[in-house]
Write a protein that binds this DNA or RNA. Structure first.
Lengths: 283, 283
DNA sequence: GGGTATTTGTCCGTATGTATT
DNA sequence: AAATACATACGGACAAATACC
């Protein structure tokens, strides 16, 4: 068996999708029709469709059929910006979205944690037994769930006078401005770690992701520091990878490039690196 | 059928993996044993295992069995750095990594493209009919395939005297230094777009990813500009998400945080060094 | 609202091929 | 060579979701 049947079917369907015979949104023939067409069993056809799903090319809708995926216009988050501009509570996010899309978010929910029992201990350099405040938000764009954000603050900030950190609800002007006003803490910079992983059950439900895997989660952990190098906040954000992009600007960059609203790269373009590899293998 | 059988089996096995009953590297019971244990058919057990595979929790080896995956130590790439970072930095990083990890890469392969027929046209602001040089590399760490990189340069740079761009093989000192030396072009900054998507077949093969999906690909597109704001290079890199992390530093950040070699990441032991693969380091 | 046809989802049993030990 | 374990492939049955009349 030089090449499995389900893989030959997969490659034939993929070719039809990639050269435009099957356009985004189009419906594939039913599993029964494909079974007859390829003279294979329905289960073998289904194996080919599963491969197409894991490659992100099609989606199945029970009772309806199998469809070529329509990709959403991705939302671009710029990770680099003035070091004191990241509020961790959606202000930069609102600003970047601009006029065309309608962002909204839930009112922050506040919780108190013991350090060591939650995942901010390392980044905030806390010792055992100290407490941490978390403020959690759900963010939407055009009523589509877009991200989940949780900011962690050492409880010592509250004890020093930043009482509003433990009150639920928005802090007008953002927490960066509030901390500066209340305690004179100026945010001097931040470090952000970016990872990609599979969604957990909560994320899968909130973002309405298919259970069968396809979509990954992008997690960013932004640790903000004051001018003495003391960590003052950790913001953990999770984004579904199918509707988000990120941008980084370093040095002098033309303004029309730096501003993400002017660039939109429609997805579907294939990886340059891999096409190069393919050519190399063939040549 | 409130919850499918294969899903209940999946949940049970996942629980055993996540709470340590099944440790990384351990072998699961065979499909036959699992069939008897759960009183289901072997195909149903296999459906559960497929879910575990797409979640990145196990891997199957024909003739051997099914094993809990050992997570590799992630490699951290810092996206922010001096905008004109030349090759000297790359060498430093290489040395720093070199103790524990051995980075290597293939010699760059050169191709000539017509603009419009390949995907660098937008970023390099090329008109129809102009030509582009691409330089492609495969990068490894400890003999593990780590990334694929392709840099695109307008052919006009070659015509102005940067002949070595169209010669295969390393450019000693890096291309940034070479362009400055040969043409007086100083790299003033860059813009980087980061996306996550499913792997294609070439990437799946090169990175040895499971065919059944699970692992996503991180694609970065770095457009570099000279001091006049003219794009001089586009570098497209693809990384498998299961062995890569990224970092961004903005403003004033404590050195022990900015340099990841001194901090320990949550999942594993040490994650040392930010990356710079030796040649074609495009700061 | 109800009923029916269509389409995908789940589950089973079986047979055979391929890789590893 | 033989045994073991996963991979592929088939056919059948019923359930669940959806669309349409």
């Amino acid at each position: 068996m030089p090449e499995p049947i389900y893989r030959r079917i997969y490659e034939d369907l993929r070719r039809q999708i990639e050269n435009g015979e099957l356009r985004p949104g189009a419906q594939l023939r039913t599993e029964i029709e494909l079974r007859d067409h390829y003279e294979a069993s329905r289960n073998t056809v289904r194996d080919a469709i599963k491969l197409l799903i894991t490659r992100g090319l099609v989606e199945t809708r029970p009772g309806q059929g199998t469809f070529v995926v329509k990709k959403m216009e991705p939302f671009v988050t710029t990770l680099t910006g003035p070091p004191d501009s990241s509020s961790g509570e959606g202000d930069t996010y609102k600003k970047e979205v601009g006029e065309l899309r309608r962002p909204s978010n839930t009112s922050p929910e506040v919780q108190i944690h013991m350090a060591g029992s939650e995942p901010a201990t390392d980044e905030l350099q806390l010792s055992e037994g100290t407490t941490v405040v978390s403020r959690h938000q759900q963010c939407f764009i055009d009523d589509t769930p877009w991200s989940l954000q949780t900011s962690f603050y050492p409880m010592s900030l509250v004890e020093r006078g930043a009482r509003r950190l433990i009150q639920a609800g928005d802090i007008k002007g953002g927490t960066v401005a509030y901390l500066k006003e209340a305690l004179g803490i100026k945010q001097a910079g931040y470090h952000e770690a970016i990872t990609v992983r599979a969604p957990d059950d909560v994320e899968s439900a909130f973002f309405k992701l298919a259970e069968d895997g396809g979509v990954s989660i992008i997690e960013t952990r932004r640790t903000a520091f004051d001018e003495q190098g003391t960590p003052v906040r950790l913001t953990v954000s999770v984004y579904p990878a199918d509707r988000n992009q990120f941008a980084v600007n370093v040095g002098k960059v033309p303004p029309e490039i730096e501003d993400p609203s002017s660039i939109s790269r429609p997805p579907g373009a294939r990886s340059d690196a891999s096409t190069a590899t393919e050519t190399e293998r063939n040549g």
